[in-house]
């Protein structure tokens, strides 16, 4: 059988065509547009001025700082906590099928809807979370209004929504482990933590990598939820790079916005590719 005939190049052509026109070409052009002042009708080349402006602009620097806070606490939280949820949901409990569906639930709700709901639940005076805190004797917290707390409240909501896919990926990984390993370990007297440390974790490394990568990338791109929940505020307290790019765009600064996008692209690449190499490399051991 002739491979190049059977698996004809035509099979991959539509994917490459659409992906190139609507993803790769814009990405390549963005490097040029980041060096200009432009709108949809005219272009003027100004060199590196946009980047100079951005590097001296407080909001963008805050956006960057916040993006890293989102990555450390948001992606880190999803990676670790989802794993624990998945271990729990692959144990011998009877309600696991029901609970798996329940954990997946938030994935069905759009970020805008989640935003509306949590604005109500986190309301500084009447919200149910504060009602609970007050009932326990605490004083109410302005979850989304206090610039110091707002970003962590936003991360909490991200986690709530983000567990779903991560948990499913982990469950998939854990259930595909050959049960023979666990039986052998049980004969050797390994239980609980030891089983987790020496079997489950090493054998789900691929899933852990997948979840970590997807959630780091998700943190870089996240816009919907931040926009619906806080609009980046109070002030710039919860802005990440993606939302500050949007703000530049609504103000009509297309060049600045594109330059922000290019910086985002470069940082993502600088973080993701080494991270992936590290994770892959460790997987080979």
């Amino acid at each position: 059988m002739n491979k190049s005939k059977m698996y004809h190049n035509g099979f991959v052509f539509p994917v490459i065509l659409i992906f190139s026109i609507f993803f790769i070409i814009p990405m390549v052009i963005s490097f040029y547009f980041s060096l200009t002042v432009w709108n949809l009708d005219s272009v003027r080349f100004i060199g590196l001025d946009n980047f100079k402006t951005l590097l001296h602009s407080g909001p963008l620097i805050t956006g960057f700082k916040n993006t890293f806070i989102y990555i450390i606490f948001g992606s880190g939280g999803v990676t670790v906590i989802s794993f624990m949820i998945a271990v729990f949901l692959t144990s011998r409990i009877r309600t696991k099928n029901l609970l798996r569906s329940v954990v997946f639930f938030p994935n069905l709700v759009s970020s805008v809807a989640v935003g509306i709901t949590f604005i109500a639940l986190m309301h500084p005076s009447k919200g149910m979370i504060n009602a609970l805190i007050k009932a326990l004797g605490g004083s109410s917290i302005s979850f989304l209004g206090d610039p110091k707390i707002a970003i962590f409240s936003t991360i909490a909501v991200m986690l709530w929504k983000g567990f779903s896919i991560a948990t499913v990926i982990y469950i998939a990984g854990i259930t595909s482990i050959d049960p023979g390993y666990f039986e052998a370990a049980a004969i050797d007297g390994a239980h609980g933590w030891k089983k987790l440390r020496y079997i489950t974790i090493p054998l789900t490394k691929d899933s852990i990598n997948t979840v970590l990568m997807l959630s780091v990338i998700g943190s870089f791109r996240n816009f919907d939820l931040i926009w619906a929940l806080t609009g980046g505020g109070p002030g710039y307290a919860t802005d990440n790079v993606a939302s500050s790019i949007y703000k530049q765009y609504t103000l009509g600064f297309y060049g600045l916005s594109t330059a922000g996008n290019v910086i985002l692209l470069i940082t993502t690449a600088l973080l993701i590719f080494p991270l992936q190499r590290l994770l892959r490399g460790k997987g080979d051991e």
């Binding site: 070409i25 990405m27 963005s30 547009f33 990568m213 297309y254 996008n261 985002l264 692209l265």
Partner: peptide, 9 residues
Amino acid sequence: MIPSAILPT
């Protein structure tokens, strides 16, 4: 891996 370039799109 990389974010899409929105305005150029």
